[in-house]
Deep mutational scan, measured.
Amino acid sequence: EQLARLKREFNENRYLTERRRQQLSSELGLNEAQIKIWFQNERA
């Protein structure tokens, strides 16, 4: 579920704002660094 949600977010926007990253962190139970790194890896 977390992965599917991250992929949906990535398809909508390849870059997250700090606020959006905080929201996802709270909703998915991941820390902000994990989300940031995931997005960086997807863009690579």
Results as ranks from 00 to 15, higher is better:
Tyr15Phe: 13
Asn41Ala: 10
Glu32Phe: 04
Leu24Asp: 03
Lys7Cys: 13
Gln34His: 10
Gln23Arg: 10
Leu30His: 01
Trp38Leu: 04
Ile35Asp: 02
Ser26Asn: 12
Lys36His: 15
Ala44Met: 13
Gln34Ala: 14
Lys36Tyr: 13
Ala4Thr: 06
Tyr15Gln: 06
Thr17His: 05
Leu16Arg: 03
Lys36Leu: 13
Glu18Arg: 14
Phe39Leu: 04
Gln34Gly: 01
Arg5Tyr: 08
Glu18Phe: 10
Arg8Phe: 10
Gln22Phe: 08
Glu18Gln: 14
Gln23Pro: 00
Leu3Lys: 01
Gln22Leu: 11
Arg19Phe: 12
Gln22Ser: 07
Ser26Pro: 01
Phe10Pro: 04
Tyr15Gly: 03
Glu9Pro: 01
Arg14Glu: 06
Gln23Glu: 14
Glu27His: 02
Asn13Tyr: 09
Leu6Phe: 02
Leu30Asn: 05
Phe39Gln: 01
Glu1Pro: 04
Asn31Phe: 06
Ala44Val: 09
Leu6Ala: 02
Glu1Asn: 06
Glu27Asp: 08
Phe39Ala: 00
Ala44His: 11
Glu42Ile: 06
Ala44Glu: 13
Asn31Glu: 12
Gln34Trp: 15
Phe10Lys: 02
Asn11Val: 11
Gln40Gly: 04
Leu30Gly: 02
Glu18Ala: 13
Glu1Arg: 04
Asn11Cys: 15
Tyr15Asp: 05
Arg20Lys: 11
Leu24Gly: 00
Gln2Lys: 09
Glu27Gln: 07
Ala44Thr: 10
Leu16Tyr: 02
Glu18Val: 14
Tyr15His: 11
Leu24Pro: 00
Tyr15Met: 07
Phe39Arg: 00
Gln40Trp: 07
Lys7Arg: 12
Arg8Pro: 02
Tyr15Asn: 08
Arg5Gly: 07
Glu42Val: 04
Arg43Ala: 13
Asn13Pro: 01
Ala33Arg: 09
Glu9Trp: 02
Gln40Leu: 09
Gln40Thr: 07
Asn13Lys: 07
Arg20Ala: 08
Ser26Thr: 12
Asn11Pro: 00
Asn11Glu: 13
Phe39Asn: 01
Arg19Met: 11
Ser25Tyr: 03
Gln34Ile: 15
Ala33Ser: 13
Ala4Ile: 08
Glu1Trp: 13
Leu24Trp: 02
Gly29Ile: 01
Asn11Trp: 09
Asn31Ile: 06
Asn31His: 12
Asn11Tyr: 12
Gly29Lys: 05
Phe10Arg: 01
Leu30Phe: 04
Phe39Gly: 01
Glu12Cys: 14
Gln2His: 08
Gln23Asp: 08
Ile37Phe: 09
Arg43Gly: 07
Leu30Val: 08
Glu42Leu: 08
Leu6Ser: 03
Leu24Gln: 01
Leu30Asp: 04
Thr17Cys: 05
Ser25Ala: 13
Glu18Gly: 09
Glu9Ile: 05
Leu28Ile: 11
Glu27Leu: 08
Asn41Thr: 09
Gln2Arg: 07
Leu24Ile: 09
Lys7Ile: 09
Ile35Leu: 07
Ile35Cys: 00
Glu27Cys: 09
Leu28Asn: 00
Arg20Phe: 07
Ser25Thr: 05
Leu24Thr: 00
Asn41His: 09
